[in-house]
Simulated assay, not measured.
Amino acid sequence: MKKGIIIEVGKRHLIVLAEGGEFRKLKKKKRSYTVGTSIIIPIQKVRSRLIEMVLN
């Protein structure tokens, strides 16, 4: 798991600046979030674009 800092809070998603300078868009969970807070980013399964196009 990586750490990150919350950059933006939307209605359904968070924008997080992860370690290494990578920006990630994460789904919000049932809790409150504040810009500037450090959070742990869960490991996500990576799906290929090709697989997504076939499944949809």
Rank of each mutant, 00 (worst) to 15 (best):
K2G: 04
K2E: 06
K2R: 11
K3H: 12
K3P: 04
K3I: 12
K3F: 06
G4W: 01
G4N: 05
G4T: 08
I5K: 01
I5V: 01
I7F: 08
I7L: 08
E8K: 15
E8I: 15
G10M: 09
R12I: 11
H13R: 15
H13Y: 12
I15Y: 01
L17F: 07
A18L: 06
A18R: 12
A18T: 08
E19R: 03
E19S: 13
G20Y: 04
G20E: 08
G21L: 02
G21E: 09
E22K: 12
F23Q: 14
R24L: 03
K27C: 12
K29Y: 11
K29L: 12
K30D: 14
K30I: 11
S32L: 06
Y33M: 10
T34K: 02
T34A: 01
T34D: 00
V35T: 08
G36Q: 02
G36F: 02
G36T: 09
T37S: 08
T37Q: 02
T37H: 01
S38M: 00
S38E: 03
S38Y: 02
S38W: 01
I40P: 03
I41K: 02
P42M: 11
P42T: 12
P42H: 14
P42R: 12
I43G: 05
I43M: 06
I43C: 08
Q44D: 06
K45R: 12
R47T: 00
R47Q: 00
R47V: 10
R47G: 05
S48T: 11
S48K: 10
S48R: 08
S48A: 14
S48Y: 05
S48F: 04
R49K: 14
R49W: 00
R49C: 05
L50R: 01
L50A: 04
I51C: 05
I51E: 05
I51D: 07
E52Y: 05
E52M: 06
E52Q: 09
M53W: 02
L55K: 09
L55W: 07
L55G: 14
N56G: 13
